[in-house]
């Protein structure tokens, strides 16, 4: 059986049999990988703690027909362990990991998604920004990488330079008066400014935003995400917002 080694971030785990786990990871060069960690639920396991959600590991596996098997794991970053000590960050991290799981495919490399995920988890672990803002920034950028970049300034349909007042999820973001479909939302201009800042990484604007605009922005981001994923994200309803 061929062995391989990669840089991986653990997305989620499932219990398997007596003491094993199926570990879903996003690797740098192989895309999403599902592998069995044998005996990792035992307290004496040598790498059980390394294969928890949110951990970045240097992993060695051998390829299997359906599932690979983890043979070695060395810790590179213990983001998951740090994040789990703060409940608000933990709920945001779960939404980040679940989104990544949905947006990536097995054995299809996605280096941009890998770096984006690493950045979001590192930011949550450092606690440099409010977890809800980090989550929304990640969701918007992950969607952009997946090909669904929202527009918060120019019209998403005709490209007319903005800012515009109307916002329509199905149309792809801000829409001008001419293109505005019926039933479009009319968020506060500050909300659209915040979302644009989160998408581009302008943290000075994002950190200085008001609570009301953050709430409105997270609602629009969640609706935008679920429209494109075509299904509900389980963990999003558990995120503790400021």
């Amino acid at each position: 059986m061929p062995l391989y080694r990669d840089d991986a971030i653990v997305l989620r785990t499932h219990k398997l049999a007596e003491a094993d786990r199926i570990v879903t990871m996003l690797t740098r060069t192989r895309g999403k990988v599902r592998a069995v960690g044998r005996g990792v639920r035992r307290t004496k396991s040598r790498f059980g703690a390394r294969l928890e959600p949110g951990m970045r590991v240097d992993i060695q596996c051998y390829e299997g027909r359906n599932l690979d098997t983890v043979t070695q794991a060395e810790t590179l970053d213990t983001w998951g362990d740090v994040i789990a000590r703060d409940y608000t960050s933990w709920t945001a991290a779960h939404a980040v990991l679940e989104t990544c799981d949905r947006l990536t495919e097995e054995h299809e490399p996605s280096v941009q998604q890998f770096h984006l995920l690493a950045g979001a988890l590192a930011s949550l672990a450092e606690g440099a920004h409010e977890p809800g803002l980090v989550l929304d920034a990640y969701l918007l950028r992950a969607l952009a990488v997946a090909g669904w970049a929202p527009s918060f300034v120019d019209c998403a349909r005709c490209g007319d330079p903005g800012p515009h007042r109307a916002f329509n999820i199905a149309a792809g973001g801000s829409v001008c008066r001419v293109c505005r479909p019926p039933g479009s939302a009319a968020p506060a201009p500050e909300t659209l400014e915040l979302l644009a800042a989160l998408l581009t990484g302008d943290w000075a604007v994002a950190d200085g935003s008001g609570l009301r605009y953050r709430r409105e922005g997270s609602g629009l981001t969640a609706a935008f995400l679920q429209w494109h994923l075509e299904r509900q994200l389980r963990s999003l309803s558990f995120v503790e917002r400021a």
Binding site: E52, G54, D81, A84, R85, Y87, W90
Partner: peptide
Amino acid sequence: DPNLEGEATAAYLSK
């Protein structure tokens, strides 16, 4: 449990 879900549950409870 001494895993991350157990740790997060403990963080929530202690809060």
